[in-house]
Write a protein that binds this DNA or RNA. Structure first.
Length: 638
RNA sequence: GCCACUGUAGCUCAGUCGGCAGAGCGGCUGAUUCGUAAUCAGCAGGUCGGGGGUUCAAGUCCCUCCAGUGGCUCCA
């Protein structure tokens, strides 16, 4: 405590106040700004979070912490975790709480307890609601290590944490009603702050220490108000409604069979989309000077021994016996590309050599990790390997980042980059890494797109740029990646003859932009909720004859559309017009063309655009031009 | 792969205490010929995920396998 019993406290706006020693953080903040004080759930003293009920520890800087601050959010989530623990211990006496930290999304608490049931969760929720109404304070107590060991004698997990506290230091515990938990704190003042807390679910988790019994994890989210929680739950419900697995079934895009778990089956409509994406990407490849190759799906074990997959990736590979030799289904395209490069002498005049390959890749993903189209065992990447000299790295990657911008702008997706730098275990020279990282960072700065440095997360063979997209609900997904590789050319003994007549190893850039058709379409389906841009839509126009009498005219128009290169289909007259319009909306068809007496008479067509209320009439030629133009420009909206 | 949960018609789902397997949508047939988000009627459609067990009797209870879901782990 400060001498003289008076502390000098500085607030975020620069104001200073003298407060008596023993003044709580709450009181000090209230003297500074009562409004901000009442909105805060904890305080920051010299950058360290403390309880509002704690005495200001000394002279220094004091700031309020609200849910808007990251640290404040974590405190609320952490307090929410305590609330869950309190609820669970009340529900199942003898349950041993272990740890309950905040996460990006919310929080969780792990328990050593029998496997939970949904009924347990209901009971926990009820106990939590009750506690929130009680507005029970979070009371901090500092106890000796021995006292703490006595308090948590029944809980080996807590004893382990207590043992980690340096000797002589007090251990802090928090009492919430009759529930006491070992905790560093700080916490919100009382459980009344937690009305916006919601338990999402439970699961069993595998603890990191091998051999220990599984724990039960309860996950949740917390907001300062119920209204904010409702908003969050609304967004979640919206996300569920966009689930690509449901839309894929509804729109007949793809399916999975029990007989081929993790192997997507593309139905005709989904295949149209795959081909359109391929076309989109291939146009770029042509413009950017790529050549396309196709290499085998299976290679003998020796190829993977050379590439390093045999040592580093074998457990994720499908293997087949061919006569007496082991063949592996390729999990990546690089080995094939390397062999093509090596197949004859190469000159510096050929570089950059850009080899693209869209081949099916197989990865033996563990059964529990499979998920719709976003985690599968067989997929196709928009993959390419670019063989360059060190000087060519910069211009090549600049072109790639331009393509990223074009591609994701067209697809109406927001994207950002991660620059993953040298990991602890790396191959090659540190100086080479530094140069490469500097080039990549310079290019990222130039691109004016947000990027984050993922320190030490590079591959062992080189630094990389990972591309993340955010879908319309703000959820992040990794799609493409641009990786520099100094190692694989050496492993395969690649070289080219330079202008100096000497042989040099090329640098390889592995890169995919959309990633895989499968994952990309999975994300994209959710992004646009199944309302595809016309150029991707499996059916672009549905032609509806008003009555049977108009069917020949409608059929003629549908044929005209098809001849113009549009994907059109006819929907007969068995159902009422409004029923067929409704079905077209539900099928997310971009354009509905209705033909009745008026249209047949004057060569026009009545067009309804997806999502729009009314319709407009235009000449058939006009519509064909209009639709073709939208498709050609890859307009996002119909 | 680990843990929990789930699996009933093409889809979404109901099925009580173990006692005749249901609905809506979709499909088919017929009537209706309709002007921009659901016309009416009838019919067909099931190895209740597979296998085994308990029982007079199993969609329902038990075991096991498969698949899916949510997490965990993994994700060059």
């Amino acid at each position: 405590m400060a001498a003289g019993g008076v502390l000098s406290v500085e607030f975020p706006d620069g104001r200073r106040l003298e407060v008596d020693a023993g003044t709580t953080a709450r009181e000090a903040l209230a003297r500074w700004d009562p409004e901000k004080a009442s909105a805060s759930l904890a305080a920051l003293w010299n950058g360290k979070p403390i309880d509002l009920a704690a005495a200001v520890p000394g002279s220094g800087a004091l700031a309020p912490l609200s849910f808007r601050d990251r640290a404040g959010r974590e405190i609320l989530q952490h307090s929410a975790a305590h609330l869950v623990a309190k609820g669970l211990v009340e529900t199942i006496p003898g349950a041993r709480p272990t740890v309950g930290p905040p996460t990006e999304e919310g929080f969780y608490y792990d328990f050593d307890v029998r496997p939970l049931t949904p009924a347990d969760l209901d009971a926990v929720r009820a106990a939590m609601d009750h506690a929130v109404k009680e507005r029970a304070p979070y009371r901090r107590r500092e106890v000796s290590k021995e006292e703490a060991e006595r308090l948590f004698a029944e809980n080996p997990y807590k004893l382990r944490y207590i043992a980690e506290v340096p000797p002589g230091e007090p251990v802090s515990v928090y009492d919430t009603g009759s529930f006491t938990d070992l905790c560093r704190g700080p916490h919100v003042p009382d459980t009344g702050w937690l009305e916006g807390v919601h338990v999402l679910g439970f699961s069993s988790i595998t603890p990191e220490t091998p051999g220990s019994a599984p724990l039960q994890r309860i996950r949740g989210v917390g907001f300062p108000t119920r209204a904010e929680l409702e908003q969050y739950l609304k967004v979640r419900a919206e996300a569920e409604a966009r689930d690509h697995r449901a839309i894929g079934t509804r729109q007949d895009l793809f399916l999975f069979l029990d007989e081929a778990p993790g192997f997507p089956i593309w139905l005709p409509k989904g295949m149209v989309m795959v081909r359109e994406l391929e076309k989109f990407v291939t146009e770029h490849l042509r413009a950017a000077g790529y050549s396309e190759i196709r290499t085998p799906l299976l290679f003998s074990q020796s190829v993977y021994e050379t590439s390093g997959h045999w040592d580093h990736y074998r457990e994720n590979m499908f293997l087949s016996m061919v006569e007496d030799r082991v063949f592996g289904w390729k999990p990546m395209n690089c080995p094939g590309s390397m062999l093509v490069f090596r197949s004859r002498a190469r000159s510096y005049r050929e570089l950059p050599l850009r080899l693209a390959e869209f081949a099916p890749l197989h990865r033996l993903e563990a059964s529990g990790t499979l998920h719709g189209l976003t985690r599968v065992r067989e997929f196709v990447q928009d993959d390419a390997h670019i063989f360059v000299t060190e000087e060519q790295i910069e211009p090549e990657i600049r072109v790639l980042l331009d393509w990223v911008r074009d591609a994701f702008s067209t697809l109406h997706l927001d994207w950002s980059y991660d620059l993953s730098t040298r990991p602890e275990k790396f191959l090659g020279e540190a100086a080479q890494w530094d140069r490469a990282e500097a080039i990549l960072e310079k290019l990222l700065k130039e691109s004016k797109v947000d990027y984050r440095i993922a320190s030490g997360e590079g591959a062992f063979y080189g630094p990389k740029i990972d591309i993340h997209i955010r879908d319309s609900l703000g959820r992040p997904w990794q799609t493409g990646t641009i990786q520099l590789d100094y190692q694989i050319p050496q492993r395969f003994g690649l070289e080219y003859q330079g202008p100096d007549g000497q042989l040099h190893p090329p640098v390889v850039i592995h890169r995919t932009i959309l990633g895989t058709w499968e994952r990309f379409l999975g994300v994209f389906i959710e992004h646009c909720a199944g309302r595809f841009p016309p150029w991707l839509a499996p059916v672009q126009v549905r032609v509806l004859p008003l009555t049977e009498a108009h069917a020949p005219g409608a059929r003629g128009f549908a044929e005209e559309l098809a001849a113009a290169g549009l994907r059109a289909e006819l929907a007969g007259s068995e159902d009422s017009l409004s029923k067929r319009v409704r079905n077209a909306e539900l099928d997310r068809i971009p354009y509905v063309a209705v033909m009745g007496d008026r249209e047949i008479a004057d060569g026009s067509v009545s067009i309804r655009t997806r999502g729009a209320k009314g319709s407009r009439t235009m000449s058939r030629a006009e519509f064909v031009q209009f639709a073709l133009d939208r498709v050609r420009r890859r307009s996002f909206d119909p």
